[in-house]
């Protein structure tokens, strides 16, 4: 009976990994309780980490990782041409993430630190979010990407709807969970200027917000620096903390 109502073609989806730890892809495989249900509604046509198959075109392409080498640039253009909808998955793809920290140091120094005299063997570019190279239709933030947010966006796209994007800071979700503020516990936290959507998971487990989801729109960097320095960080330490996951947007682009 069930085959009667099933649509003839399910959305063809694919997953691609660029410069990253592949933790976001792993997080999808960690959807153990939902994985088989998800697979009933889509066809995964390309997912190198899990399968041999390749495909020519995709309804939805999920991109994990930053663009950081000349071959990444070629690959992402190629995928964009063949994808109806392109979704950036996780901090590396959305903001450049932790990879972009290397942009803060002279690139020759970075290469030499790791490869010494052999540094010229491996070409590199500044680490960039996917949107620096091609049009990105949707973004799923976080390091790793948040699973609930992935499910919301995934379901919306499969049903042909527009996913809603959060624009409030992590503090809002942290208050909703009735956590004691980490500042009152003598810690410093980037919750006030970091985009919500993670359900304040780190502060809820007693750890400071690292800013992994990127900044809220119109983030007030100077006020954040004031808070951090009022709570014991030097200005230099405060600036470094702010850049942990948000190095791609240079400080002078802050308001």
């Amino acid at each position: 009976m069930s085959t009667q109502t099933a649509p003839k073609t399910k959305p063809q989806i694919a997953f691609f990994d660029f410069t990253s730890c592949e933790g976001c892809q792993l997080n999808k495989l960690n959807l153990e309780n939902h994985l088989l249900e998800i697979l009933e509604h889509v066809d995964i046509v390309e997912f190198r980490e899990a399968m041999d198959d390749k495909a020519d075109a995709y309804d939805i392409a999920f991109i994990e990782g930053s663009i950081s080498t000349p071959s990444c640039v070629e690959r992402i253009h190629d995928i964009r041409r063949r994808a109806k909808i392109l979704v950036a998955l996780g901090s590396c793809a959305v903001t450049g993430g932790i990879n972009a920290m290397k942009n803060l140091q002279p690139i020759e120094d970075v290469r030499e630190t790791v490869y010494g005299k052999d540094k010229y063997l491996f070409p590199t570019l500044p680490a960039m979010p996917v949107s620096a190279i091609v049009k990105v239709d949707y973004e799923i933030h976080g390091c790793p990407m948040s699973i609930p947010e992935f499910l919301v966006v995934f379901k919306a796209l499969v049903m042909g709807k527009q996913p809603i994007k959060p624009d409030s800071p992590v503090c809002v979700e942290c208050k909703l969970r009735e956590n004691e503020c980490l500042y009152d516990r003598g810690m410093v936290c980037l919750g006030p200027i970091t985009l919500s959507g993670c359900d304040a998971i780190c502060p809820s487990f007693g750890q400071f917000c690292t800013g992994c989801r990127g900044l809220v729109p119109d983030a007030n960097k100077n006020a954040m620096l004031d808070i951090l320095t009022d709570h014991g960080l030097s200005l230099q330490e405060a600036e470094k903390r702010l850049l942990l996951f948000n190095s791609y947007k240079q400080p002078d682009t802050f308001k």
Partner: peptide, 12 residues
């Protein structure tokens, strides 16, 4: 052929 990540430099 993985793109280099340069973590040892990031940690400095």
């Amino acid at each position: 052929v993985e793109a280099p990540r340069y973590f040892e430099a990031l940690l400095k």
